[in-house]
């Protein structure tokens, strides 16, 4: 008798908790340096969504090198949204597995990139090797840390920024190729992701300069103190646009289309933009951009579309098997 009562009570509690507000789970598959950004953002979004719909949201995170994360999604990782380092990695989701439509980048404002960043240098305090611009990185005896462009999105931005600098300076693709080849001669380790590369530079004290996401460099300064490292802004860099997209095939199956859409759209809201700025990503929204204007240095930024004809073309020329990166790194 007693046991039966207990069982009934347990059952009532169990069903009661199900009958109340729904708990929806989302999986955000992201690249390496966004850990802190999405920890903040997920909490804010859960609060917003709860107030709006009454449903509880739990957003789970998976982080890794951008190319590797795209590979995992293609192999079946059930991510509702992909927030990767560059458009080519989300294009791969269409090319290899038709996880989303080909025109995914037109579905959200600003090329589906709610925040931008750029590529800067992180050097040790006092800048002992006097690094001021890209041409200082190819000097003999300067050890440069950057991740592997095959697996890391940040590394591809690094590579293209260096290329754009040399092409603007010397005017030809041949000169740019020579410059980038000389730069990679100075690279002692190629980590698989941007965060691994930062820890190599910061924790293992390898290298004189790390080519890094701006947000990643700011975070290292915040974590380890401005008395240990300095940020050096080159004369020219690239406008890095890390895009976001719903993975249609997954959300359709899980029935999470609406939440996933809300999740990405809220990134463009005032609060979402403020969180981006707080985590050292450059906000798109003009009011948030003004608020954080004194944080982010002004510099000449080239775009992937104008300089390289978009990601599809850049990917094919530079990073595909047998592409320019393979040619210069094999030498």
């Amino acid at each position: 008798m007693k046991f039966k009562t207990l069982l009934l009570v347990a059952l009532a509690i169990a069903t009661g908790s199900v009958a109340g507000a729904k708990t929806i789970e989302l999986l955000n598959v992201s690249y390496d340096p966004t850990r802190e950004l999405y920890t903040d953002y997920n909490a804010a979004f859960a609060k917003y969504w709860k107030a709006k719909t009454g449903d509880d949201i739990v957003v789970k995170q998976s982080h890794g090198g951008s190319g590797k994360q795209a590979r995992s999604l293609i192999d079946g990782l059930q991510g509702d949204v992909a927030t990767l380092a560059l458009a080519a990695d989300i294009d791969a989701l269409y090319d290899n597995a038709k996880l989303l439509p080909a025109d995914w980048q037109k579905r959200l404002p600003n090329n589906s990139t709610p925040y931008t960043s750029t590529i800067v240098f992180l050097v040790r305090k006092g800048n002992p090797k006097a690094i001021k611009d890209w041409n200082d990185l190819v000097k003999p005896g300067v050890s440069v840390v950057t991740p592997n462009p095959k697996t890391s999105g940040g590394a591809r931005w690094n590579y293209l920024a260096a290329w754009a600098y040399a092409k603007h300076r010397d005017g030809s693709d041949d000169a740019a190729k020579k410059f980038v080849a000389a730069l990679f001669k100075n690279v002692p380790v190629l980590d698989s992701g941007a965060r691994g590369s930062t820890t190599t530079f910061v924790q293992r004290a390898i290298g004189d300069v790390a080519i890094s996401w701006e947000n990643e460099a700011f975070l290292a300064l915040k974590e380890f103190g401005a008395d240990k490292f300095e940020i050096v802004v080159p004369s020219l860099s690239i406008l890095a646009e890390p895009p976001v997209a719903i993975v249609d095939k997954v959300v359709k199956k899980k029935g999470t289309t609406e939440v996933a859409k809300g999740y990405l759209e809220y990134l463009y809201s005032d609060e979402g933009q403020d969180i981006a700025g707080r985590n050292f990503y450059r906000p798109r929204n003009p009011s948030a951009a003004t608020k954080y204007a004194n944080v982010f240095p002004q510099l000449q930024l080239v775009t992937i579309d104008a300089e390289f004809g978009g990601w599809t073309s850049a990917q094919k020329t530079h990073f595909a098997d047998g592409g320019v990166f393979d040619q210069i790194y094999a030498k």
């Binding site: 999986l27 390496d32 802190e36 995170q61 990782l77 820890t199």
Partner: peptide, 20 residues
Amino acid sequence: GHIRGETNTMPLHIEILYNE
């Protein structure tokens, strides 16, 4: 797949914490 709170074992979680 490195989903935190779901598919991370102890050794994987150690790597994540270190990287953070």
